[in-house]
Design a protein around this nucleic acid. Structure first.
Length: 399
RNA sequence: GCCGGGAUGGGGUAGCUUGGUUAUCCUAGGGGACUGUGGAUCCCUUGACUCGGGUUCAAAUCUCGGUCCCGGCCCCA
């Protein structure tokens, strides 16, 4: 938990640096909310049940829908854009495996207000900054656009109800299966090859020549803004499809190759959901980082987390100075200095040993000899150097 | 939904195939050697067979069932 809280704190402060505000929503919602967003099939993949009042409720499987609902319910009159971030656990009824748990944590953000390259750039820049701030070395950010394929498939007369299965095959790069499906709809091999070629388009903005002018210039603008922000470790990958119905334009994801099958650590894109939940239609861009997964990736890279102990461990030399020691530890704590004191009534040697075990930075040794001079001995626990310090100077020394 | 592996002191483990001793070793925790100075060493000590049924004179070990964990596939908002 100490490790997790430490990294949570880094993500929070990065989000705040970008001008985002933290929000939180309930752990469970009406099941209907998630059905409205993702369709009735998600019922198979979430924890959904009836409560004692026979309400249909579900443990949240993700946080975008709850946050948008919250926006509609109680934040719709806030100044736009709303830049919100969240951190919380989610639940999915799936078979656990490495990097995938039934209870997991997401750290995400939503920008509610407009659909444009600036909004998308802001989202991607924050996602990249957060991943970087954690110190993850090996990762890749890929930017795509769901509108391109939607347009091409519509032009090829693929009926909307067949879109999900086609997109799913394209996302998996299962072109033979996709060709079969497209063939059954009456899409010829040439048209299919053209579609496959688009999903294989990967690289810098120079690869955008083959896409339609509106999307091409949009993505060029996006990449230019990102570059101006110093976010250059991203690539265009029009194969990022994400199989998600509700995305409307730009989509992006980040992956950590070290994680194997469950390597995706971040996913997001632009969407419009608020009108589904009874609000006005507002375009948004959001993303979520898989917190457990990114921590796992950092672990695999050999990143070690060391928790630290208190600044001052107060060591009474003998039992008759314990009340003096209590006064001193209280003085330190009252001044905002983390301080601990022996409560096991150990002898000095054992107490120093314990102070060392709990990683205290300094020992404050309280003994009769020192107290006669209104002083204590301060010992640096890593070097072993120690010196007498007057009680009046103790707090400022630690500060 | 499908498949594989596993569960032994706080942590890490041996033992299980071939049933039988005081359940092994490392580490950690408490105390001591050491009376006002930690990290070393030595000694003492605390502490475990996932649950339930069955077989047997005897089960950590064999068997059946449950629970939980880990991993792979599928799926992945």
């Amino acid at each position: 938990m100490e490790r997790r809280r430490y990294y949570e704190g880094i993500l929070r402060s990065t989000a705040k640096t970008f001008g985002f505000r933290e929000v939180a929503t309930p752990i469970f919602e009406e099941t209907e909310l998630f059905i409205m967003k993702s369709g009735p099939n998600i019922l198979n993949e979430i924890y959904a049940f009836q409560d004692k009042g026979e309400r249909n409720i579900a443990l949240r499987p993700e946080l975008t829908a709850p946050v948008v609902r919250m926006f509609v319910n109680s934040m719709s009159n806030e100044p736009r854009p709303l830049k919100l971030f969240y951190f919380g656990q989610c639940f999915r009824y799936e078979r656990p495996q490495s990097g995938r748990y039934r209870e997991f944590f997401q750290f995400g953000a939503e920008l509610i207000g407009n659909a444009n390259a600036e909004t998308d750039a802001e989202a991607i820049a924050l996602a990249a900054a957060m991943i970087k701030s954690l110190g993850l070395r090996e990762y890749k950010v890929r930017i795509g656009h769901i509108g391109i394929l939607r347009q091409m498939l519509a032009n090829a007369n693929v009926p909307p109800e067949r879109l999900p299965e086609v997109l799913q095959k394209l996302d998996k790069k299962m072109y033979d299966d996709a060709r079969d499906i497209l063939g059954s709809i009456g899409v010829g091999d040439d048209a299919a090859d053209e579609i496959f070629d688009i999903t294989e388009t990967v690289g810098g903005k120079e690869v955008l020549g083959k896409v339609s002018e509106d999307v091409g210039s949009y993505l060029r603008e996006l990449v230019d803004i990102l570059a101006a922000m110093g976010v250059v470790d991203v690539e265009i990958d029009l194969g990022v499809v994400r199989g998600l119905d509700y995305y409307t334009g730009m989509v992006f994801e980040a992956e950590a190759p070290s994680l194997g099958a469950e390597k995706q650590i971040c996913g997001g894109g632009s969407y419009s959901l608020s009108e589904l939940f009874g609000g006005e239609k507002v375009f948004s861009t959001g993303f979520a980082i898989g917190f457990d997964r990114i921590l796992l990736a950092m672990e695999k890279e050999g990143q070690k987390f060391e928790n630290t102990g208190v600044d001052a461990y107060v060591v009474p030399v003998s039992d008759d100075v314990r009340t003096d020691a209590a006064r001193i530890v209280s003085m330190l704590r009252g001044s905002g200095i983390s301080a601990d004191i022996d409560i096991m009534r150990r002898k000095i040697g054992k107490t120093l040993n314990h102070a060392s075990n709990v990683k205290a930075k300094y020992a404050v040794i309280v003994g009769k000899n020192e107290l006669k001079e209104n002083s204590v001995t301060v010992r640096d626990m890593s070097s072993g150097d120690q010196k007498m310090v007057r009680l009046d100077d103790l707090v400022s020394l630690f500060r």
